[in-house]
Design a protein around this nucleic acid. Structure first.
Lengths: 207, 207
DNA sequence: AGCAGCATGTAAGTGGTTACATGATTGT
DNA sequence: ACAATCATGTAACCACTTACATGCTGCT
């Protein structure tokens, strides 16, 4: 009936890359999947508790001095695969930008332009981050097993992404995720720019 | 503090195109903005009540036999403009598809391919609907003031959208909304296809 | 008479965020 | 000592969906 929580899936997924504390799970998710997924502590800890009760994760006696490190059990790994295969909920669309733009005639002067300029800026910023991540993960084909994070900056790329040479499976899936972000950001950028030039023509909406 | 409800804005926006009942407001939103916005009755009616209490909308004595028709007051129109100008919440990203694809190595055989094929299909379907809407609103430059709805079907367009000749303001904003959908759907389509061909290369993920 | 669509609302439940409270550890 | 970060949890609140209850209208 109700939209099932995806938090357990995300937690299980994070744990599939290695044992972690709840705190680290969150950092791992926001660091690597930050643009596409989000979890808050208020969701993670209860989920961890449920998962532990189900036997999907195990709390390791702290080799650490503080906090408890969780690891996937065999049943947890099976559960991850099962959850992954489920289609997942498609929450109703709610695009605040589009809602505003659609009723653009009632926007104050220059309002539409501001909206679009902001959308363009956000897309460009995202593109820069993606470019940095891409150069990072493309530099390392094998070796360091820890997750890559967003750090540096690079000029926005305009070229369409070529099919990318298939690396090892894990790398391939990470690249696909990144590629999605790039495609979407580029599309948003192009769209916003088109609209902006279109707005200049319509003098009824100048500001 | 809390993410403010956007429902009142959506209701006000719908009412800006003419007086309606709550039932019609919903139909209007799902019909025209269906791909980008959604409202349920459980949200609309309470919102209408609040809006009425604030004096933003007025309940007209039923010229109709059943239901009450709501219309925007002057203050409501001002409120719409104010709400429209506010940036609007940016809910944390939660892309179920990306979450699954990222942990694609743990997916059962062929799971990733299915995910991508589905994404491609959905994008293509959306593109067809958009094409139908576009041909409809481009045929009518002025005249019939009622909202256009999705009805027919057309082959998916691959060509990049040209800047589109500026029509009257209202038309322009509607076109921008539609164009957003087209850009995004095309991007998703291209991305999914790229990933699909990439998957064929990696024999570790065939199914 | 009966059914499909129009119309209005309420109640329950859920997933999720935010804020708060608390404490340990580490570096300066 | 002090601050920043690590770490864990809970409580309050929120928007929203779903399901339900109810009745009217128009058509066949």
């Amino acid at each position: 009936m109700a939209r099932p929580s995806q938090t357990e899936l995300a937690v299980l997924g994070a744990l599939s890359t290695g044992p972690m504390t709840g705190y680290e799970i969150r950092g791992s998710i926001t660091g690597v999947l930050g643009h596409f997924w989000h979890e808050s502590f208020g969701q993670i800890y209860p989920a961890l508790g449920r998962l532990e009760a189900q036997g999907a994760v195990r709390r390791r006696s702290p080799g650490r001095t503080s906090g408890s490190v969780f690891e996937l059990t065999r049943s947890g790994r099976r559960r991850l695969t099962a959850l992954l295969a489920e289609p997942g909920p498609t929450p109703p669309a709610r695009n605040a930008l589009l809602l505003r733009l659609f009723f653009g005639t009632h926007l104050p002067d220059g309002g539409a332009r501001d909206l679009l300029a902001d959308a363009e800026a956000r897309a460009s910023a995202a593109l820069e981050e993606y470019a940095a991540v891409r150069s990072e993960i493309e530099g390392v084909t094998e070796g360091v097993p820890d997750a890559t994070a967003i750090t540096a900056a690079a000029p926005p790329t305009e070229e369409p992404a070529r099919p990318a040479p298939p690396a090892d499976p894990e790398q391939a899936y990470r690249t696909m995720t990144l590629s999605f972000g790039e495609h979407m950001a580029r599309a948003q950028q192009a769209w916003a720019r088109e609209c902006l030039t279109m707005l200049e023509g319509v003098s009824g909406a100048r500001g």
